[in-house]
């Protein structure tokens, strides 16, 4: 990243800090930081960046500003800088949107909006809100080979969110449309529309999501991806139970591109954790059934340093699944550590 970009990022942070302190009554500035690193004990490259020499690409920083414009309108946005792209820490607009409450639990949103369809997709950068260092990558990652994307960062467009209550139950329906720009200029997911349905109480949450879009300009391994100009659809279902110290989370998602043979992806994971004082040991099994399939097992420990900070250790063993008639690649292990802080 150029020096000027770094300066712009720094100025934006300073600007937001000034705005926050000047209009503290209506405007709130918050932020988060992760200091993280990982080491691959095998010879392969994991997530295109973690090798046997170690990698600190999990480190990132974000600053958020939220302001009430009137009684029924608010604006919020977030800047984010990550070390994942070779330690560049280029500050980008993660999301920013205006929300208009038109009454009776209905909000209309417009701008760059966080993707809502998976259990942790809209708080994926906020490590203190989930047990792992990274959510299971079988489901929460982009397809590097130009295949369908099961999880997205955000989209530019509009959404209508209705929230209601039925006794102790809270439910919401989020319908949206727009388009999403892939990282590194690797294409656009246009004509996007979808919906997420949430139902739950403090102790449990169910989530159902559906997304449809048309990729354009997406690059594959050998030239343009076959999924370009095809309708890609993803159906996802998630459940979370958090009670009496126990945590159970599980999600399943299936993506496919119309008219493209072998583009189907199915992924799932199941996590079990249990809080013992400030500690939460947890175990996750994840599986991805695609052109390149794998399973993984993660043993982790989350330690709550204080209400706003956690320390985490994950040990993940990734086992590639052999393609038909081929020999499976060797399994490898990744050790990760991270400290997450929100302020």
């Amino acid at each position: 990243m150029s020096k000027s970009k770094k300066t712009i990022g720094l100025c934006l942070v300073m600007f937001f800090s000034c705005v926050g302190s000047s209009f503290a009554g209506d405007t709130k500035v918050s932020g988060f930081l992760r200091a993280g690193g990982a080491l691959n004990l095998g010879d392969d490259l994991y997530l295109e960046r973690i090798d046997k020499n170690g990698n600190t690409g999990d480190t990132h920083f974000g600053v958020n500003i939220a302001s009430d414009i009137t009684d029924n309108m608010s604006v919020a946005g977030q800047l984010w800088a990550s070390g994942a792209e070779g330690g560049a820490f280029e500050m980008v607009l993660d999301w920013a949107y205006a929300s208009w409450n038109i009454g009776s639990g209905l909000n209309l949103n417009g701008g760059k909006i966080k993707y809502p369809n998976l259990l942790v997709s809209d708080t994926i950068d906020i490590g203190i809100s989930y047990p792992w260092i990274r959510p299971p990558q079988e489901l929460y990652t982009f397809d590097a080979e130009g295949g369908p994307n099961m999880s997205l960062e955000s989209f530019v467009g509009g959404s209508a969110v209705y929230t209601g209550f039925a006794g102790d139950l809270e439910y919401s329906v989020n319908a949206y449309l727009g388009e999403s720009y892939l990282e590194g200029g690797n294409g656009t997911l246009s004509k996007m529309m979808g919906a997420a349905f949430d139902l739950g109480t403090d102790a449990f949450k169910l989530k159902l999501g559906y997304n449809m879009h048309m990729p354009e300009g997406v690059a594959g391994d050998l030239g343009p991806s076959e999924i370009n100009s095809n309708n890609v659809s993803t159906l996802s279902f998630g459940a979370k139970i958090n009670m009496a110290g126990a945590l159970i989370m599980s999600e399943y998602a299936a993506s496919s591109a119309a008219d493209v043979a072998e583009s189907d992806i199915k992924a799932l994971y199941a996590t079990l954790g249990y809080s013992i004082g400030s500690m939460m040991p947890h175990f996750t099994y994840a599986s991805r059934d695609a052109e390149e399939s794998n399973t993984s097992m993660t043993f982790g420990l989350k330690y709550q340093i204080n209400p706003g900070a956690t320390l985490k250790f994950d040990f993940t063993q990734v086992s590639p699944v052999a393609e038909e008639g081929m020999e499976a690649e060797e399994a490898f292990s990744v050790i990760s550590a991270a400290m997450d802080v929100v302020f």
Partner: peptide, 8 residues
């Protein structure tokens, strides 16, 4: 509140 703030 982290999930609320950082998702807007």
């Amino acid at each position: 509140w982290s999930t609320m703030i950082f998702s807007g």
